[in-house]
Computed example of a mutant assay.
Amino acid sequence: MYFDFHRSEVWEYPDRISVQVIYKLYTDPGYLSVHKIIDAEKYIFVYTMEGKGKFYVDGKEINVVANQLLVVNAKESLSYSCSGKCWNFWLFEYKNSTNSLTPNVVYDFFMKKEELMMSSMALEALKEENRVLASTLFASLYYIALDKIKRGVMDKKYKVITSATNYIRENLSTFSVDDLSAYLNINERTLLNIFNDYLGTSPKKLHKYMRLEASKEYLETTRMSIEEIAKTLGYANSGHFSAVFKSEYSITPARYRMIFNAGVSSQI
C-alpha cells in the first residue's frame, strides 16, 4: 500500500468550494477506512484510477471500478474498502455551497493527463497550506467533471478509452499501438481519432505517461534498482529510462527517489 496526502488545519475558504483533505492512494485487498466522525456538510470526491472499491454510505453499498467518479455525502455512517486485487484512487474532501454533482451516484468519468497533473498540483499546494490555490485547482477539476457528465460525453468512445487504458496499464512493458488496435478490433486510424477527440492525445503518448507514472510508483514504494525498474517496464536500458524520465520531470529517477524518501522521513 502507498499513499500521499495532506489534511489542512483550516477548513474555511471564502469561495464556493473549499478543500481540506487530498489523498492519492494505491491500496491492496486489506485496505479499509471507517469514518468515525460524520460531517453532513462534507463531500468526498473519489476518482478510481485502477481496480475496484466498495463504499457503505448510511448503510447503502456502492461499488466503483476504474475510470469512475463518486461524490460521497454521508449523514450517519461511512466506510470504504478495496474489493479487488487493488484499488488506486484520488480522494478530495471538500465543502461546497451549491454541490451540483448528485451525491452517492456513480458516474463514468476519465481523467486526462492534464487533470491528473492538476490533482497532483492541488495536493502539493495543500501541503504548503496554500488553501486558495488547492481549492481553485480542485474547483477546476470538479467543474470539468460536471461539464463532461452534463454533456453526456461518456458514450461509446468512453468504453473504447476505458478498455484501451486498462489494456495499456496491463501491458506497459510490451505495449504497441498495433497490438492495441487488434485487441479492440478497431483500425489504427479510428483509434487515433477517438483518442484525439476524447483525450487530446495519442495511445503512444498515453502509454509513455502511464509507464512513467508507474516508474514513479516503483521509485516511491520499492527498493528496486533503476536497472530493475527499467527492465520491468520494458525500457531498452537504464540509460534510456533515465533520459525519458528526466525529459518529462526535469529530474533523474535516482534524484526523484532521494527527494521523495527525504520528504517521507520528514513526516515521520
Results as ranks from 00 to 15, higher is better:
S135I: 07
T98H: 14
L123F: 03
M118K: 15
T102K: 15
C86V: 09
G84Y: 00
A139R: 15
C86I: 10
E114H: 04
Y142S: 00
Y142G: 03
E114Q: 12
N104A: 12
I62A: 06
V65E: 13
A164C: 08
N73V: 08
K157R: 14
A74E: 09
T165I: 10
Y167G: 02
M154R: 03
I168T: 08
K150W: 06
K157H: 09
E128V: 10
S120G: 15
D155V: 00
K150L: 14
S77V: 02
E93P: 02
T102Y: 01
M121I: 09
M111D: 01
K156M: 08
K157E: 13
M117A: 14
V65P: 00
A134T: 03
E129T: 05
S163V: 00
A122F: 07
V71G: 08
A134D: 06
M117E: 15
D155W: 06
S163T: 10
L141T: 11
F138C: 06
N166M: 13
K113T: 15
T136A: 07
R131A: 01
M111V: 07
M121P: 00
Y94V: 08
T102N: 07
E93H: 10
E61R: 12
M117H: 06
V64I: 13
N88A: 11
M117W: 01
I168L: 13
C86T: 10
T162P: 00
